[in-house]
């Protein structure tokens, strides 16, 4: 690769509104090749919207998203609640997506990577929620996109599987895939994220490594640090509002 210095993903001053309701404001960040960027924040903070914008599913109201990659499939995507045609087996589902991506998928390999190697012929509608999510992750990697956008990859998984997902993400990053994921699982963030991006009420209130964040806030745990960042931001917002009122 010659473009290792270039960030794979550049989000520049992205703003998004659904009608009058502004959900994202001045969001800017970038992600280097092979990095794992973890998006955290309270429910309704705009995480999923941001991920969908990055995945190209909705067009932002303002700003720019650049994915610097020349692949056929630049972005792989795991939706928040993945679902597949119930009449098909796991293997068939992955093969289908392989056809869409124009590649021959090594189904066994893909399933093995997400821990589903024992059930390639099971019908999708016979999978648990967690297993469906694993299949969704496997799907996201079909065609080896340089950027993966994963919305809640470890939600609903048991602790062992959470570990496994973290390992998968690590592997992918190690292979040079850039991963942007949203999660509520702070332990996982700490384990795998190079950068933690804290989104609150549509704006980025922190963007640094988990360690840096913890140290800056002086909290013992990342959870504490996040709480602190979000808390302060609330205050700041209020104060901004007050200032606005004074003007």
């Amino acid at each position: 690769m010659t473009d290792t210095e270039e960030p794979v993903l550049t989000v520049d001053d992205v703003r998004h509104a659904f009608g009058d309701l502004t959900v994202l404001e001045d969001v800017s960040f970038s992600a280097d090749r092979g990095s794992v960027v973890s998006l955290v924040g309270p429910n309704g903070s705009g995480k999923s919207t941001l991920l969908r914008i990055v995945a190209g599913l909705i067009e932002q109201t303002g700003g720019e998203v650049t994915v610097a990659a020349s692949a056929d499939r630049p972005v792989g995507y795991l939706p928040q609640t993945p679902a597949f045609r119930p009449q098909f087996s796991l293997a068939e589902t992955l093969s289908f997506y392989g056809d869409l991506a124009g590649v021959d998928v090594d189904v066994d390999d893909r399933l093995r990577r997400v821990g589903l190697q024992n059930v390639p012929d099971r019908r999708v509608d016979a999978l648990s929620g967690g297993m469906t999510r694993l299949l969704g992750i496997a799907q996201a990697t079909v065609g080896d996109p340089p950027l993966l956008v994963l919305d809640e990859p470890s939600s609903g998984l048991d602790p062992v599987m959470v570990e496994h997902v973290s390992a998968v993400v690590d592997d992918l990053a190690g292979e040079g895939t850039t991963v942007l994921l949203a999660t509520h699982n702070i332990d996982a963030v700490e384990q795998m994220a190079d950068t933690v991006l804290v989104l609150d009420d549509g704006t980025i209130v922190a963007a640094e490594s988990p360690t840096a964040l913890r140290e800056r806030t002086g909290a013992d745990t990342l959870t504490g640090a996040l709480a602190d960042v979000i808390e302060r931001d609330e205050t700041a917002s209020v104060s901004v509002g007050q200032r606005g009122g004074a003007e």
């Binding site: 599913l57 499939r73 939706p79 609640t81 679902a83 045609r85 996201a140």
Partner: peptide, 16 residues
Amino acid sequence: ADAERGELDVIRTYPV
């Protein structure tokens, strides 16, 4: 049905 399930979003991330 694809759209409601959310699978259409997934398909859209492929070069289709």
